[in-house]
Design a protein around this nucleic acid. Structure first.
Length: 266
DNA sequence: ATGTCGTGGACGCCACGA
């Protein structure tokens, strides 16, 4: 089974590239973030033509998450149970069971600046995610949380640590929130590097950041032990960041061994 | 370091978020 995550930065603007990427990459399950469309405006028919069912949680101008699957899509939960609002609940999480794996698509709040109320919201949101994940892990089934976490887990996950002094994405409390997810039972499935030493997944549109590899690894795959042990390969699809009209994020693709996955099921 | 995107409101640009 091939699973992936991609922050598309507007599914409307990215629709041609998304459809082409689905054809070329043929993932079984894809988690999408930053749809920037209302649920009704998601290109459901276009992805259905490629064989994908879609569970969509949109909200207009910002946010928005989805799970696309061609291996079944059941028990959809929209939103983060017990999650905080800013001030209202935003479209930042959606869960579904696909091919026997519980899959979450998450778009963690950005945080803006460490002294911004959005930063406290980010930490509260991550705490709620941990609680929701712990509840899911109690069932013992395979689980994978994929998405834009807006946190670089280590200093090696940003192009220049010094450039992030005083910024979000690298602070100790944000990293502690990721550590808490790992302590709850999830494993950070780190993709192998592409060009350059770091498996970055995001590069700013400005200043030629992509070509200078001034990136960050903030799109993460956090998998339960049974899923992590089934990982055959994981990589960043840098091709999707190239050319005309890319998202500022590249997809992360993970191949799972189906036998290993089956063996890990209770 | 802040150079670019994307969106939507009232435009032919601006504010905002990332």
């Amino acid at each position: 089974m091939r699973i992936a995550t991609w922050n598309v930065n507007s599914v409307t603007a990215r629709e041609p590239r998304l459809l082409g990427w689905l054809r070329d990459t043929a993932p079984d399950v894809v988690c999408l973030q930053e749809l920037k469309v209302a649920t009704a405006a998601f290109p459901t028919a276009a992805v259905a033509d490629l064989g994908y069912e879609a569970a969509v949680h949109g909200e207009g101008r910002w946010n928005g998450v989805a799970v696309l699957s061609r291996v079944g899509l059941a028990d959809v939960v929209v939103g983060l149970p017990g999650g905080p609002g800013f001030p209202h609940q935003e479209a930042r999480a959606l869960a579904a069971t696909c091919g026997g794996v519980r899959v979450w698509s998450v778009y963690v709040p950005n945080g803006r600046e460490p002294d911004n109320p959005h930063y406290a919201y980010k930490l509260a949101w991550l705490a709620a995610l941990r609680a929701a994940v712990a509840a899911e892990l109690a069932s013992g089934g395979p689980l994978a949380v994929l998405g834009d976490f807006n946190v670089a887990p280590t200093d090696a996950d940003v192009w220049d640590r010094a450039a992030f002094d005083g910024s979000t994405h690298v602070t100790e409390p944000e990293r502690a929130a990721l550590a808490a997810l790992r302590e709850a039972g999830l494993v950070d499935v780190v993709p192998r590097p592409g060009k350059g030493p770091h498996p970055f997944t995001y590069w700013d549109y400005r200043a030629g950041a992509f070509h200078k590899d001034m990136g960050m690894r903030i799109d993460l795959v956090y998998a339960s032990q049974s899923v992590a042990t089934a990982v055959r390969d994981a990589w960043v699809d840098r091709e999707a960041r190239k050319g005309t009209g890319p998202s500022d994020h590249a997809p992360v693709v993970v191949d799972l061994d189906d036998d290993g996955l089956a063996a890990g099921r209770p």
